[in-house]
Design a protein around this nucleic acid. Sequence first.
DNA 1: CTGCATCCAGCTGGATACTG
DNA 2: CAGTATCCAGCTGGATGCAG
Lengths: 121, 121
Amino acid sequence: MEYTAERCRARETLDRVGDKWSLQVIALLGERTKRFTELKREIDGISQRMLTVTLRGLERDGIVTRKVYPVMPPRVEYSLTEMGATLMDAANTLVCWAESHLAEIDAARAAYDARNADPEG
Amino acid sequence: MEYTAERCRARETLDRVGDKWSLQVIALLGERTKRFTELKREIDGISQRMLTVTLRGLERDGIVTRKVYPVMPPRVEYSLTEMGATLMDAANTLVCWAESHLAEIDAARAAYDARNADPEG
DNA sequence: CTGCATCCAGCTGGATACTG
DNA sequence: CAGTATCCAGCTGGATGCAG
């Protein structure tokens, strides 16, 4: 079994959802269609630039769709595609894993750091 | 439901497995315990430095264990912890997603790029 | 309201040389 | 064999200003 090759392909997906904001955008659009400003307001700390960049990337990959209304002021709505919804489900597995293991990881880190700070190894 | 908060925690996990090499290391150690050089040989393109950095990070988080044999020349064996095995399973969901959607993503990208290269929008 | 352009700081990871 | 140390290029993403 070519694990390396398979993980390489997995990395392509991780590159997609593994950046700083994509997962949150996907999760929020999973609730329902939303507008640019709505997303910006709901994602704490994201800049206008990064929201645009993130949405463009997801749109390019067929994860979200972008609907522009030719009105003034502009109105643009973003939604999850079908593929985007399946991606959200897959990512959810990792979210669940994270929720059930974060405490354990924190403990492991603390133990590791204590071991290595300790002068008498 | 606080999606944003949950995704933030999910990001902590993505930060762990979302770097360039962690997923491959986890996958290979999922086969069986391996030595440093063995991993280095099996992961195409990884440098000594990055294998060390990756293994240290995973060890710190309790994903892998490191067993040193006090012999000459040195012998160090790495294995997946129980938690590491569960992480591999969770990550596998995303691997499977990637495998079944990469073609679709490539198509979406090509379509998007064609749309945007087209001068008559 | 939505989005692009520019500039820039910090982090990631690659190359290389050295050590027990 | 299994690291550590140093240096550095490139990418990510934040701040800000401008535009339709």
